[in-house]
Amino acid sequence: MTLRLEAVSCRVGSRLLLDAVSLEVPRGAMVAVVGPNGAGKSTLLRVASGLIEPEAGDVTFDGIPLKDMTPERLAMRRAMLTQDSPLRTRFPVMDLVRTGLRGVPAKQVDAFAALALRRVGLADFARRDVLSLSGGERQRVHLARVLAQLEAGALSDTPGLLLLDEPLSAQDLPRQALVLDIAREHTRRGGSCLVVLHDLNWAASRADSIMVLSQGRVCATGPPHAVLTPDMLKETFAVAAPRVHMHDRSGRPFVVPHDITAAQASETERKAAPCILP
């Protein structure tokens, strides 16, 4: 499925959270959104998911405007992993994953849920209580629910759009790789994925394209090697003396954290020069 945003603007009160943002996530592609805190990354995902309607601009799935789709239809075409869940109730892991499976024949529900749990490496956790799990495990239970929702939608249509809001935030190193590889597997099967990441190296290692967002505007977008440059890091993230290296085998860039120090640029200076346009 192809997601397209055209000149999308979004405002909350007097604050412009997204300013004429355009973006395309084609079928089979994974696009990573990076940017400083408060850049509008999560807002972008909320707009792309249909949770909030933009003030201006169009959002379409395969050419169909989101606002013409019912909530049920939307749920079949896209699923989103949010940053945190307010769940405070005892909830067996398996039951939580099942809530994502609407419209699936009753006989298949358990098989779908079990498969999703296996994919996130929690096959043995089905009967555990969600509240007894670690933060990382809980995040992957929700990922399993999201994957199950996409699988249910794919029963009657092509694979949909996977939206991930900082999916690595609670994961250890091997699980960070697992989560991104699950997303890549989804795109290999014809789905598409838009993921918000803070870790530039994970973004550069897996995404087809990186979009840099700062203060609601697109500063740069393109393949990792074109976007992840010292200049971009200096301007957008206000870090001093960043160095970007190339990984020999993949030809993808990476940033060495040892070189990075927080720049002296004050908040006001950054606001004066929000970004360099490509």
């Binding site: 949770l51 909530p71 949010t82 109730t89 039951d95």
Partner: peptide, 17 residues
């Protein structure tokens, strides 16, 4: 109501009104 236990946002994302 089962979906709402996961929060309004997640319930809406799962297609609940």
């Amino acid at each position: 109501l089962n979906a709402l236990l996961l929060g309004d946002t997640d319930a809406a994302l799962m297609g609940y009104r």
